[in-house]
Design a protein around this nucleic acid. Structure first.
Lengths: 211, 211, 211, 211
DNA sequence: AATGAATGAGCCTTCATTCAT
DNA sequence: AATGAATGAAGGCTCATTCAT
């Protein structure tokens, strides 16, 4: 027999989880109360506890949904591009609409790296981390083949480099802290700088160091 | 009139704050209770509220102390080294003893990048972020002068690159999440890999991309 | 129109009530939840509330069934025996199989004597208490007639004496408390003593004081 | 350092526990809510949880106090009396003022025999049960010595007999159920019968069967 | 200056009961 | 007739903060 929650329409399930993710993103796990989730989702306390076992189960479900989204929206296909820089351009720009729709998941993704969230690392570790390393190493290998990157360099090094910049750029999209950190290095004024501008700097940086 | 807390000996002040930092690091801001701080520090509730205005004030004081330590222990002087790689070797290895003494502050430093901690950004932003960018740009400039790095490249790019790797390595010292992420890229087994090994990979990576 | 519950086969009705009685026996009235009853009986919440008005009604139905059983299984016929001691031997030993099948009702019978269950007294008082006194007074009168008991003693005194020992023995079958109390008086080791042994002590006791 | 509760005056401690005992007696363990205890004792929830670890701890403390009282008020000294019947007369009548002051503890004492309270038997078993058996066996032995009771009968049998009648009389003082059971046997009208009358019947009963 | 007892709002969770399907 | 999703009050317990001593 299906779990109660799984009997809801997929759209409704997503709506509930995405909204809940927002609340967790805004306040953190411990800072989020069950009533506040109920209020935002329009679900009664009783119903919520029919849907999920407890607060931890709610959080894990949110994290799983986040990974699903990242998997489907970000890592589903390799971008087409003449050189790896074209490809990276597409990837970085692709983050912007993702950010518009699902910024809460980027936030939770940062939270997941936090020490006090270690108890949840089991819930994301297996799937998410593999995803990024596999994807980026694949990307590098692909462009090694087309000659736009030096084939003598171990792909892992390049892939880690790219992933790192991508990760910190994602962080900067939602965290004032990471945004200021970036802007400070490159002399940008955080209150007016545009993400487009930041992407250009990053791409230039990648090019500079990879070529 | 002096704040009550400041009348304590400096050593006692540090002892209290460092211990409190541990508790916050372990449980996060919302997950930390005042009674748990009192228990760990051996201070009575009444005294704690004489020392600090409220929970938020305690947290801010902890963050300030963290920056003091980082400033004094990590960024106080440029390492001596023939090439920039020698210098970086010293810097990365210098993190290990720092980690032994003050890992709680690294954890709090990660927490600070979290969205739900944005309310505390003001308390660290001004000092800490400047510190890192100034230091690393200075470092790069210094070694540009000695010729061990290409003077045509804008120092900001190199400095950001170095700072990024340093930051993520710090994170990996305390966060399972970041540790696994790194290990996954480079095919290390997280349960046995040593930090020394990770530092070598990072230094090789820096060298590879900078030379 | 018949109550919905009464349209079920008698066997099914008994099955449901006996199982529900188990749950109430294990956890007490307030400690028993409707969902736990549904789970154990395999009945849906909706159905349960079609069968019974509310939790109180369920409990009362269980108590009524308990009295039915006691009436039919324990007090339906006088035991045949040469002397009253033979008869009592049969009665006490008859409790053991009853206990195997319906221990939950003995438990509920103890609960019923509890102050906080006074609200349910009405549901059992009228039938159950009369049953025991009538039966035991009848028993005594019968054996007075056969000469195995002194006819000058008021039957009520003897009957109450017998009923008391029978009641406390029943209690000891299900309650650790009453079992230990008995064993302590007679120097038995609760962890190994057998019910057969206890019955013998009781019968000896009755004989000693009645003869 | 003393527990917070133990810093209160003994009178206040007793006041709190005795009142709490009343609430538990009226509603049973599961039927009693923490707020209801707070309301009746005039203590705040926070204070209550400073005094006691949790609900179970409160209950156990109440049980312990009950045993203290029983020990000091009921079993502290052997009654003086020419024959054992004089002594028993004193004992049974001694229950009446005890009942006036501490009826709640008699109720809890009944509850303790309940199956769903088995989890608490550890808290009373060791002290209370020994108390009664030791006392009554001692009583019987004493009067065997003075010749008012047949010295050939094993004291345990007589003591258990006495204790049983005493126990059920106590029960009848607080439980409608046990009161009616007694009255039914002896043809009393529960609505008008006096305890004095019941004591006389019991004493006559003891005399009848012991002599 | 220091203590820790006291408060009661708020936490997570479960409950008896209703009602649309 | 039967299901089980939904409700929200109430459960036990912890918390940040105050204040009398």
């Amino acid at each position: 027999m299906l779990k109660t929650f799984e009997k809801l329409s997929t759209a409704r399930q997503h709506e509930i989880i995405d909204t809940t993710a927002e609340v967790f993103a805004e306040n953190g796990y411990h800072g989020t109360s069950i009533p506040s989730i109920c209020e935002r989702t329009g679900i009664s306390v009783g119903a919520l506890y029919k849907y999920f076992k407890n607060k931890e189960d709610i959080y894990v479900s949110v994290l799983q949904r986040g990974i699903d989204i990242i998997e489907n929206d970000l890592y589903n296909e390799m971008p087409e591009g003449e050189t790896i820089y074209d490809a990276l351009n597409i990837i970085f720009n692709g983050l912007l609409p993702f950010y518009d729709n699902y910024r809460q998941y980027i936030i939770l993704y940062i939270d997941a790296g936090t020490f006090s969230m270690n108890q949840f690392s089991y819930a994301i570790t297996d799937r998410l981390e593999n995803l990024a390393s596999t994807y980026h190493i694949g990307l590098v290998d692909k462009y090694k083949a087309t000659g736009s990157i030096n084939p003598d360099i171990d792909s892992a090094y390049v892939a880690y480099f790219i992933d790192t910049y991508l990760t910190l750029f994602s962080y900067s999209l939602v965290s004032e802290y990471y945004r200021r950190r970036f802007d400070l290095f490159f002399g940008l004024d955080s209150s007016v700088a545009k993400n487009q501008e930041r992407i250009e700097i990053i791409l230039k940086s990648l090019r500079l160091l990879l070529e």
